[in-house]
Design a protein around this nucleic acid. Sequence first.
DNA 1: GTACCTTTGAAGTGA
DNA 2: TCACTTCAAAGGTAC
Length: 544
Amino acid sequence: MPQLNGGGGDDLGANDEMISFKDEGEQEEKISEDVSAERDLDDVKSSLVNESENNSSSSDSEQAERRPQTRPDSDLYEKTRDYFSEALRRQQDGGFFKSPHYPGYPFLMIPDLSNPYLSNSPLSPSARTVIPAYEWPLLDVPGSAGLKDPRSPTPGHLSNKVPVVQHAHHIHPLSSLISYSNEHFSPGTPPGHLSPEILDPKTGIPRTPHPSELSPYYPLSPGAVGQLSHPLGWLVPQQGQPMYSIPPGGFRHPYPALAMNASMSSLVSSRFSPHMVTHSPHGLHQTGIPHPAIVSPAIKQEPHGDHISSSMHARKSPGPPKKEEDKKPHIKKPLNAFMLYMKEMRAKVVAECTLKESAAINQILGRRWHSLSREEQAKYYELARKERQLHSQLYPGWSARDNYGKRKKRKRDNKPDSTPEDFSIRNKKQCVQYLPPEKMCDSPASSHGSMLDSPATPSAALASPAAPATHSEQAQPLSLTTKASSSSTSGSQPTTPVLSRPIPFASLHPSMLSPPSPFHQAALHSHHALFQSQPLSLVTKSND
DNA sequence: GTACCTTTGAAGTGA
DNA sequence: TCACTTCAAAGGTAC
């Protein structure tokens, strides 16, 4: 797959996750077939969902509104996509970020801050108006990034959820997926590019458009688009949202192309309130622009969370006092491929069913993830890889360990050798599968099945390191390393996906489960055998 | 108010 | 090197 190697030498990261698919042509054909098949399937799904939901509660009507109405014209999509690709290719001058690897996100790859898209400073909301909508379809997704859910009465930044600070100091190539949170847009100052009609007349807050209003170009569901961060969103200061500081000496210009130019820098200084732009006595990175991954400790409700201004202080100073440590801004982990996928697809899944519990949604997403083609997964792996790269560039001293213990960790130990005291009553209570086994079989997937169940082709499964050697080995898709990582899925987690509450089966819809590929279907037979040996609905956690 | 649930993947820890 | 743990997102649920 050329795009996988497209980053080539320009990519600072190792290519260990970049592989070529031997059956590329095959894949492409298959994918195009899958796409059309999936669209058909989605249509069927929609109708089925509508049917099922017509019998549901009255609240479903609003969900029906969120439901994708019709598939955007695929031709238009293709043409537009090509156009975007071409436009971006022209833009990109061989900087760090080459041409987009993923046609689906061509607009994410804005390599150069001096490019015309950004000439008006991305820090200014109005600056986004200079970006022609046709060049940046996502920008034309009006305000959707600002509001995660039309049903939500509160914009993202007002949500009572953890208000993650999402400001940037440069254009993240993955910005739209790197939404460390969705609260990127300041509803107070609706971006100028937003059409008036999509702004809430009362609040001025861009509302999440009806699916039919959404750009048909972006291959995301309307809801998913709603979750997308504005690629420049984290540059937009947000009122009432604390900013975080750059760790003193922690930042450097990772990429020359990303280095903030003078105008940007001044804009940051001028537009960001003193609270937002911290002038560390130790000397911030000259950009002084924070990264969305940073979250105030206070926001994270960590113990001893300090005011945001105090969180601006240094983190990672050698041997910092405890107090200083507590003031460290919380830098989130970069999202992995699945997380990126989840962010993108969650809304779609939510829109397609009446399920609201994230646990259930995540189960579905997990299965869908497995049923993704390798190329599709490759997109997310690549995105995740780039995000990790950028994250490491932005926070050279950051370690995942920094976040350890920052949240009260639940006791989810299911190890059989654990003492009875380790098991809370909650852990012991009976749990019910969200998805019935039949449905589970409809999709690949035990948590151990991973890629084993859903390679596009058997040959691909062999060719790709994504295919685990065994069920206990987790896939390392796109990685040439054969190291079999052992994640929690192979370890502490129950062998059967369980949840404390059953999914209302009526709310489940076939669309929740990805259409099995032929290979997948073959694999399903073995899974049927597996699942038939398991309780159908009630399963207890494998605590012992 | 907050932990839990669920998912996968990355990274850290300890043996 | 391996097994295991923690965290990342999300939001309803339960305590």
